[in-house]
């Protein structure tokens, strides 16, 4: 049975008719074609699917879309562009904070939320704050560097939706 919901994703309103057991991450990837939000573990552990839901970082693999009718979602596609990277994206590039890149969208969405809520941050605080995002490549060191470097460059607006 389909349910009808409206979602504002990256500032664009969408009216959707979806099966009631559809997960938010599947709405984003399959219905809206926003493939930047990744599915890693599908069990709320790895954090690759992290998006902002009404301004809070959540794991989109564990949210039923019909639970969030009328809400606002921001994905990695909504925070910057190739020509105008978000400060967090630029810092990840500058500090070589990614290798394979699979965890990166979720890592960046989580890091933006962390900076927005937790300033001032130190290295331990970044590591603790990103505990819900797993990276198999980097060993996290450069990710911590990137988050700390990006923090002073983020404006209120760049905190993401």
């Amino acid at each position: 049975m389909a349910v009808e919901i409206t979602l504002t994703v990256n500032g664009v309103a969408h009216a959707l008719a979806i099966p009631e057991n559809t997960l938010l991450v599947d709405v984003l990837r399959e219905h809206l074609g926003l493939k930047g939000t990744h599915v890693g573990c599908d069990t709320s552990q790895c954090g690759a699917c992290t998006v902002h839901l009404d301004g809070r970082a959540v794991k989109a693999c564990s949210v039923l879309a019909c639970q969030i009718d009328g809400c606002e979602v921001t994905t990695i596609e909504g925070i910057g562009s190739v020509d105008a990277l978000h400060p967090m994206q630029a810092a990840f590039r500058d500090h070589h904070a990614l290798q394979c890149g699979f965890c990166t969208p979720g890592m960046i969405m989580s890091a933006i939320d962390l900076v927005r809520r937790s300033a001032p941050l130190d290295r331990a605080g970044v590591r603790q704050g990103l505990a819900g995002n797993l990276c198999r490549c980097t060993g996290y060191h450069n990710i911590v560097d990137a988050v700390l470097a990006a923090a002073p460059h983020m404006t209120e607006r760049q905190g993401g939706g």
Binding site: S44, G47, T50, L53, R56, A57, V58, K59, S62, V63, S110, D113, L114, G129, A131, G132, N133
Partner: peptide, 9 residues
């Protein structure tokens, strides 16, 4: 509990 994203929900 869990991690920040889990605690948000």
């Amino acid at each position: 509990i869990g991690d920040r994203q889990v605690r948000h929900l």
